[in-house]
Computed example of a mutant assay.
Amino acid sequence: MRPVAARLSRIAAGAGKRLGRLWRDRRGVGAVEFALLAPVLLMLYICAFELTVGLSVAKRATRATGTIADLVAQQNGKVTKAFLATMVDVADSIFVPFSSSSLTLKISGITIDASNAAKISWSWQKGGTRPYVVGASVIVPSEMQKPSTFLVRAELSVPHDLMMFMANAFSMSTTQITIKREYFFRQRVGDSISCTDC
């Protein structure tokens, strides 16, 4: 029995020495740390990139909406459907290099009467249809609501796909958000702007 106990004692001592050496050995620690951190860093990089692209699209949506409202407000007294249809090209050129094929664009003329009631005078949307009923009430920003004035409103919305990692499952998914912008501009020339065929 004693030789077996001595042999087990030697095996245990050898295993203890090997475990001690393994515990003190620091080779490969960097590789293990990198293997643990690499997926998290990759996730953060992709999310930051996607958010940056999303912010760039949002900036272009803001610029396009303001530019369109400004261009329509500069017209001398009247506009037509043909002129308003060119505003889609304006938006497309501002959105380059991003796709704007699925954007929605609405342009409205709003009359504020002497009693300070804002109503749709005319409206047009991409595709040539009328999105709002003539005479429908409109909510206008308080700083622009002045009696007997005319406003041009441009509304633009564009869907954008964001590739995001889900925080709880570490899986990738695509989330679609809709970026919407709305601008009001006063007419620059005359008292109002009419749309002859809207």
Rank of each mutant, 00 (worst) to 15 (best):
A6C: 08
R7A: 15
R10T: 10
I11Y: 12
G14S: 14
G16T: 11
K17N: 08
R21K: 12
V29Y: 10
A31Y: 12
V32G: 13
L36A: 14
L37E: 10
M43A: 13
C47D: 08
C47Q: 10
C47G: 10
E50S: 06
E50L: 01
V53E: 09
G54A: 08
R60T: 02
T62F: 11
R63C: 02
T67Q: 15
A69W: 05
K78R: 14
T80V: 08
A82V: 10
L84W: 09
A85P: 03
S93Y: 13
I94H: 09
F95W: 02
P97Y: 07
S99R: 11
L103G: 07
L103T: 05
L105A: 01
I107L: 10
D113E: 00
K119F: 00
S121M: 03
Q125P: 01
G127A: 01
P131S: 07
E143C: 00
M144Y: 05
M144W: 01
Q145K: 12
Q145I: 03
P147C: 03
L151Q: 08
E155V: 06
M163A: 14
N168P: 03
N168C: 00
F170D: 05
F170S: 10
T174M: 03
T174D: 08
E182N: 08
F185M: 14
D191P: 03
T196R: 09
C198E: 03
